[in-house]
């Protein structure tokens, strides 16, 4: 009895020691995560209720920033830009990525296929600023490669892609599609490779064509990945910054203004920190809602 008790005590003192050592391992991450990832969320919420220009102390203004935000005449424009951006980028990049991944997995499972996958992934590793710089030059009305090509096709008047309202947003979206298709292709490809081979083989035995197998087997199996890719695409569209900063500055006439760019310009150009924080908190709520909808949708489908 007494020996087992002291053994128990020894165990718990060993356990306590281990817990302390464990805490020491976790501590550096906690300090950094708390300072740079967790506390700023709450500070953002706090500042969103203040007026603050970083010279004088923040002044509590209650919901004033949010009220002003609801009356902001550019906000509707930004939301419609974002919706248009989503409608251009998400269907195109998702479909392209899926078709390319499925085609390579089905018909080009050789060195050429893996070479093509490597090449299509290259734009993913280029920084957005370098990409924006290159595409900015490609889009130039005075001799940009795209206009040179269009001239060969007989288009007499060079198109000012980034300088005109109707073309500016789609032109930025094209760069985004160019940069992310390879990324989504890799995710789809991994998903297809994880597909159990027996199902495909059974379908072949039953005489299903490759189109039927794609439609009835591959596509349903990839559904979770598709949800994820669409969600990432939507969330990403609110946060487009680098491309817009380098290519259009939000113009012409705010045709390419995004939420992220708006936050940047309110905070760091106008020094309206409180107001910018209110917009950031709004963005946070929207993004959390999108995550929530995706999760609910998932559960419903699984059940």
């Amino acid at each position: 009895m007494s020996t087992s008790l002291s053994a128990g005590k020894r165990m718990s003192s060993r356990r306590r020691r281990q817990a302390l050592i464990g805490a020491a391992y976790i501590l550096p991450s906690f300090a950094l995560m708390f300072i740079f990832n967790i506390s700023p969320i709450f500070l953002s919420i706090f500042y969103s209720f203040t007026k603050y220009d970083m010279t004088a102390a923040p002044v509590w203004v209650g919901f004033e920033n949010y009220i002003k935000l609801s009356q902001n005449k550019y906000l509707g424009m930004v939301l419609s830009n974002t919706v248009r951006y989503v409608l251009i980028t998400v269907p195109i990049q998702t479909t392209l990525a899926l078709l390319i991944a499925a085609f390579i997995a089905g018909f080009l499972k050789n060195r050429y296929g893996s070479f093509l996958r490597s090449v299509i992934f290259i734009p993913v590793i280029a920084s957005l600023i370098a990409s924006a710089t290159v595409w900015d030059v490609l889009y130039k009305p005075d001799g940009g490669l795209i206009n040179q090509f269009l001239a060969l096709l007989g288009v007499s008047q060079p198109i000012n892609f980034l300088g005109k309202k109707p073309t500016a947003l789609p032109s930025v979206a094209v760069v985004s599609i160019w940069k992310s298709t390879g990324y989504y292709m890799v995710i789809y490809y991994a998903g297809i490779m994880n597909e159990p081979a027996e199902v495909q083989e059974a379908a072949i035995v039953d005489g299903a064509s490759s189109a039927q197998r794609f439609w009835y087997i591959t596509l349903p199996i990839l559904r979770p990945i598709t949800y994820m890719i669409v969600t990432l695409g939507i969330i990403g569209s609110f946060q487009v910054f680098d491309l817009v900063y380098k290519m259009t500055g939000g113009g012409p006439g705010r045709a390419t203004l995004t939420v992220a760019y708006m936050i940047y310009s309110y905070a760091f150009q106008d020094k309206r920190m409180g107001y910018a924080c209110a917009l950031a908190v709004g963005l946070l709520i929207v993004i959390l809602l999108i995550h929530l909808i995706q999760t609910l949708f998932f559960k419903e489908r699984d059940a």
Binding site: N37, S39, P40, I41, L43, Y47, A267, M273, A280, I287
Partner: peptide, 16 residues
Amino acid sequence: TMMIPGQVILIPMFMM
């Protein structure tokens, strides 16, 4: 924290 968009923490981090 992985769900939090970068723009939300940007401004307080700048002040800190």
